[in-house]
Design a protein around this nucleic acid. Structure first.
Length: 153
DNA sequence: GCCAACGTTGGC
DNA sequence: GCCAACGTTGGC
């Protein structure tokens, strides 16, 4: 089992939205970055745990989710009305993929991005690198445990 | 709202 | 293959 971090803008899809969704689960659609796609398509397994991260507005880790379904084609690419429409990704030869995620827990209080900086053991986190824009990224077991511990303090 | 950093596109 | 231009991300 592996650990991940997934970013979302809360104005677009928040952890509350996930908790309120049917079965508390949702597809993670709209990813249009090859590196992020590859992580979802090739490396995520059902049961992997995800740090749920809100960007832009009060950036920070706000809870935990779990991979509920392995990757399958992102059908938002097929809908011309959708803002993630991409004619280069037809159903017969999809370019973009998504996984389903399920709500696990929402932290009692969010763990702000700023609180992660300077923490021993998190120095190498992709999230904390200057200019990092990756929206789906792997997290080491140690990093996951440190963050979980900080969130429970 | 600003702007630095990034990924992608397309002309050459 | 190079690289300038562009659109987007995301912290502040």
């Amino acid at each position: 089992m592996r650990y991940w971090l997934m970013k979302t803008e809360p104005g677009c899809f928040s952890i509350d939205d996930l908790e309120a969704a049917p079965d508390q689960s949702s597809s993670w659609d709209g990813v249009r970055n090859y590196q992020a796609r590859n992580f979802m398509r090739d490396e995520m397994s059902v049961g992997d745990l995800i740090l749920f991260y809100h960007s832009v507005t009060n950036p920070g880790v706000v809870g935990i989710a779990r991979v509920a379904r392995e990757s399958y084609p992102d059908n938002t690419a097929w809908n011309p009305e959708d803002r993630h429409y991409d004619p280069r990704s037809p159903a017969e030869k999809p370019l973009w993929f998504m996984v389903d995620v399920q709500f696990v827990e929402k932290f009692a209080s969010p763990l702000p991005l700023g609180a992660l900086r300077g923490i021993k053991g998190l120095e190498k986190m992709e999230l904390l690198k200057k200019g990092s824009r990756l929206s789906v990224m792997p997290v080491s077991t140690e990093e996951f445990e440190i963050i979980l511990r900080l969130a429970k303090e």
